[in-house]
Design a protein around this nucleic acid. Structure first.
Length: 781
DNA sequence: CTTGCGTTCGTTTTT
DNA sequence: CGAACGCAAG
């Protein structure tokens, strides 16, 4: 380990060298915390002669884990693969796969994702004959999640819950857990809670991990909840060499159980803890950090610190106020185009951030019309797409027929004439006999309980059995292919022959690829290559169930990134736009109205801090005086967070904070044309609300609605647009083409723009337009 | 059992 | 405004 001093600043070095005892590294945004963590691992191995096997690093996301793995392998080199680097959830799965039988589960449990949990809860509400209007899954699931995050089991919950409503909730919780267990399944929160339960109740298991794990590191510690805290505490109990890294100012996940006091009270939880502050920022210009510091200092509950940088002053933070969200989006599209044209930046250098997902729509439209390639982060995860979930449900059903959610998902997919009525009958029959759905179906069919549906059901069951037999002959990949073929899924999609069905088919191909890659990997691995096919299938499903969109990303592509402020945490971009800076939107109205408004606003302020500190070179803050929210035009004053930035740091003034009645009326008139009729200054395009991006046409009168779509289906088209790899064009200069929005026109120029063609078209009515072929989807006529 | 239509409801999200 | 969902007609 040469020259650590040269690679690290004083505080970072201290973080690396302080290996013994509890350590809290308060790492400000952009202060190089991953650098410290990876060097720390390398130092432990190389200088302290610690066996890599005795080191563990925990993160929240697969992406962070993969990144850490990569960097540790690079820095620490030989032997580093022994270091246990994983997410909270996959670490717990690994523990539970080994020992779950000691707390009454099978080691081969399925993992329910949030959709599965939702289906399960729906079944319960239905079975309990509750009014679904009054009792929605979300409410119960939210409460149950809160309980689990705080390690409160059914018995304990019962003590907390008083009154009729309370008893109901407790009963639902109990039923939900019972069903999970009989389905041989755990939800995401169970993974953590049950791991803790196991470590607490089984001394042997705890001793096993305590003996193994000499050094534990935790990233993003400010995001941990009570259950995760307990887990870490238990795992590190023997040696107490626990190093946590985090930033209380970036704690933005309270709503999903994160407890900021874990980091604020670390020294009390772990007496004798050493605290190291990393305040030097290597990311941003001083002007940006000054703005960030100015905003965050308004929070009371925080550890005092202040970021600084020696990158120089940089440009002032820009602030721009617009009449409407359309003008705001126009400005951003135009600004990005100018900067990209002037060759000072690539599209990939830009990020546009917003508080709520709904805001992305307007931005998308404008970017698309400006021909700027973009990508939205945080859309639907590959593994949550309908076609993928369907095929995975088949695999799950083959592996674990007790998994009711999987069985019921595929019962009538593809359509085999088994409808809701039959499904309900089976569910009731099974529940009455304490059988799983599948077993209930089997018994019921034998006893002729389901009348005319009996034949269909037995066909279905033998179909599943046939598939199961195929597993041992064809392996995992073969089985995936078989399912896609034998269900008629691929044929159906081929016949449909729309952009959407083609996109779906591509997704299915991608799933086959992932399965092939997985099978290849486990067949290379000495430990797993000789496992029987069904165990390989289990491994595949486990792998996939903890996967998210994060690792589907292809960072190399040159596109602008659109995302929520939450999704931006941990990322950095040369040019950042924070949009919708209006009181009532950001901070959100809910936080302003909340009972503990002070705390909620502080959380929103941290979100603002996260947003500001994403920017490396320039930061632009924008807001609109009037904005459509839920179909209504809202007038909101400039966000208090903008006002917290001293005027001398801003380029652009905060003009007004409220409007007179007349002014409002004026804005209203303009904004109420709203979504449909608003025409920007250039007057050359209307809104795409009538259907461009989603190929989908609202509920406008007289228009025929396209077939029912669910959230998991939408986004296929634009994702495809963004993904569009350059292919040859079927039109050339001089050809007549048709555009969904601009109508017909003549191609006047085609430029090769690297990964896509830039096409110039002289439209008959809309005038001349430049666009990317991949986005424009021009049709030759 | 499937499909069309009206009603309701609405932060942030990883695993 | 738009998505999700429940209900009632094909």
């Amino acid at each position: 380990m040469e020259n650590l001093e040269k690679l690290l600043n004083k505080e970072q070095l201290e973080g690396v060298l302080t290996t013994e005892g509890p350590v809290l590294i308060l790492a400000g945004a952009g202060s190089g915390k991953t650098r410290v963590l990876t060097h720390r691992v390398a130092y432990l191995i190389a200088e302290k002669n610690v066996n890599p096997w005795n080191i563990m690093a925990i993160t929240f996301t697969n992406k962070a884990a993969a990144e850490m793995r990569e960097r540790v392998d690079r820095i620490a080199g030989e032997g580093s693969e022994g270091v246990w680097i994983s997410t909270f959830h996959s670490a717990c799965v690994r523990i539970l796969r080994r020992f779950a039988d000691r707390i009454g589960y099978k080691n081969s449990f399925s993992i329910y994702d949030s959709d599965d949990s939702k289906s399960l809860m729906k079944q319960i509400i239905k079975l309990k004959n509750l009014d679904p209007k009054k009792y929605k899954e979300k409410r119960f699931l939210g409460q149950i999640s809160d309980f689990k995050n705080n390690l409160i089991d059914c018995d304990e919950a019962e003590k907390y819950l008083k009154g009729a409503e309370g008893r109901l909730t407790a009963g639902i919780y109990r039923e939900y857990q019972a069903r999970l267990k009989s389905n041989n399944a755990m939800d995401f929160d169970d993974l953590i809670m049950n791991a803790v339960l196991l470590l607490k109740s089984d001394k042997e298991v705890k001793a096993y991990y305590n003996d193994r794990l000499h050094y534990i590191m935790v990233d993003e510690y400010q995001d941990t909840n009570a259950a995760q805290f307990e887990l870490i505490k238990l795992l590190s109990e023997k040696r107490k060499n626990l190093c946590v890294v985090g930033d209380d100012d970036q704690s933005i996940y309270k709503f999903r159980g994160a407890d900021i006091t874990n980091i604020l009270s670390f020294e009390e939880h772990f007496p004798g803890a050493k605290v190291i502050k990393l305040e030097q920022n290597y990311r941003s210009y001083t002007s940006i950090l000054n703005a960030a510091n100015a905003v965050i200092k308004n929070n009371r509950g925080r550890k005092d610190k202040s970021l600084w940088s020696n990158r120089g002053e940089g440009e002032k933070v820009r602030f721009r106020q617009f009449e409407s969200s359309y003008e705001e989006a126009d400005f951003i599209a135009d600004d990005i185009r100018k900067r990209e044209k002037s060759l000072t930046a690539d599209y990939k250098d830009f990020a546009v951030l917003y508080r709520t997902n709904a805001q992305s729509r307007t931005l998308e439209e404008k970017l698309m019309m400006a021909g700027i390639p973009y990508r939205i982060v945080g859309g639907i995860n590959f593994y949550q797409r309908r076609e993928i979930k369907d095929i995975l449900a088949y695999l799950t059903a083959i592996e674990n027929p007790d998994n009711d959610v999987a069985i019921r998902r595929i019962l009538n997919v593809p359509k085999r004439g088994i409808g809701a009525t039959t499904e309900g009958k089976i569910a009731e029959y099974a529940a009455g006999r304490s059988l799983s759905f599948y077993d209930g179906m089997q018994l019921g069919v034998e006893n002729g309980m389901f009348g005319r549906s009996g034949k269909k059901l037995s066909d279905f069951m033998s179909f599943i059995d046939t598939l199961r037999t195929k597993l041992s002959f064809h392996g995992v990949v073969g089985l995936v292919k078989d399912i896609i073929e034998d269900t008629g899924y691929s044929e159906e999609l081929k016949l449909e022959d729309t952009d959407e069905s083609r996109a779906r088919l591509e997704n299915l191909d991608e799933l086959i690829n992932k399965a092939a890659l997985f099978e290849h990997e486990i067949n290379e691995d000495e430990e797993t290559k000789d496992l029987p096919a069904d165990e390989k299938l289990s491994l595949f499903l486990q792998d996939v169930s903890l996967m998210t969109s994060a690792d589907t990303g292809d960072d190399a592509e040159n596109h602008v990134t659109l995302m929520t402020l939450h999704a931006a945490k941990g990322l950095e971009f040369p040019h950042v736009y924070i949009t919708g800076l209006e009181d009532g939107l950001f901070p959100s109205q809910l936080s302003i109205n909340s009972d503990d408004s002070d705390e909620e606003i502080e959380e929103e302020r941290r979100l603002m801090y996260v947003g500001i500190t994403r920017a490396m070179d320039t930061l632009t803050l924008t807001c609109a005086k009037a904005r459509m929210v839920r179909g209504q035009t809202e007038y909101m004053p400039v966000s208090r967070f903008v006002k917290e930035i001293p005027a001398e740091l801003l380029d652009g003034r905060v003009e007004k904070t409220s409007y007179s009645f007349d002014e409002r009326a004026d804005y209203k008139e303009r904004a109420d044309f709203g979504f449909k009729a608003y025409v920007p200054k250039e007057n050359d395009y209307g809104s795409l609300a009538y259907g461009g991006i989603y190929g989908y046409s609202g509920n406008a009168k007289g228009q025929k609605r396209k077939p029912r779509k669910k959230k998991e289906d939408i986004s296929l088209l634009y994702t495809k647009g963004a993904d569009m790899v350059k292919s040859s064009l079927d039109y050339g200069v001089g050809d007549r083409v048709k555009h969904t929005k601009f109508g017909e026109g003549t191609v006047t120029e085609i430029k090769d723009g690297g990964r896509d063609y830039q096409v110039t078209v002289e439209f008959d009515t809309a005038g001349r337009k430049k666009m990317f072929a991949g986005f424009a989807r021009l049709e030759k006529i």
